[in-house]
């Protein structure tokens, strides 16, 4: 058995072990240039097939709530945002990245949620989501990679 003193030390050290894991959930700062974020977040590479899944799922991207996408198995698709078929022939990766990360940078009255915005700029966030962006940096890059396949 571990003595009480050692237990306390272990407990006090726990955050050091856990925090790098938590960082995967956290916000990765980005730089916008014009209407684009040219550099991938955290230098990560996106995976298009994972991105498709994130776009489809209601608990992740839920892109289909507002947009039409070539995901026929998804049933009802929203009409609030523009259809995204062929988006990659209209926008480049950097432009898509900014629109997904924080469209309100371009259009302050936008209906589109920011998927990777500095959480300290958000208002009255529920406990379960506090301090986290909707999608982490990897998930955001996955979605960008998927959308770039929609030529």
């Amino acid at each position: 058995m571990v003595c009480r003193y050692c237990q306390r030390i272990i407990i006090s050290l726990l955050p050091l072990v856990v925090s790098p894991l938590a960082a995967a959930e956290g916000f990765v700062p980005w730089q916008a240039v014009g209407d684009s974020i040219p550099q991938p977040l955290g230098g990560l590479t996106g995976d298009a097939s994972r991105g498709r899944e994130i776009a489809r799922r209601k608990d992740l991207g839920n892109c289909l709530a507002c947009h039409r996408l070539p995901i026929p198995e998804a049933g009802f698709q929203g009409t609030v945002g523009p259809p995204l078929d062929g988006i990659a022939s209209r926008l480049n990766a950097g432009q898509i990245r900014l629109r997904v990360a924080d469209e309100s940078r371009r259009i302050p009255t936008t209906v589109m949620p920011p998927f990777h915005k500095d959480p300290t700029t958000l208002n009255q966030v529920a406990d379960d989501y506090y301090g986290k962006p909707v999608l982490n940096a990897q998930q955001l890059e996955d979605v960008v990679a998927y959308l770039m396949t929609l030529q």
Partner: peptide, 15 residues
Amino acid sequence: RFGQMNMACYVCHDQ
């Protein structure tokens, strides 16, 4: 605007 979704009522219901 409120929450992680950064949404306000007017955004959907007025527009």
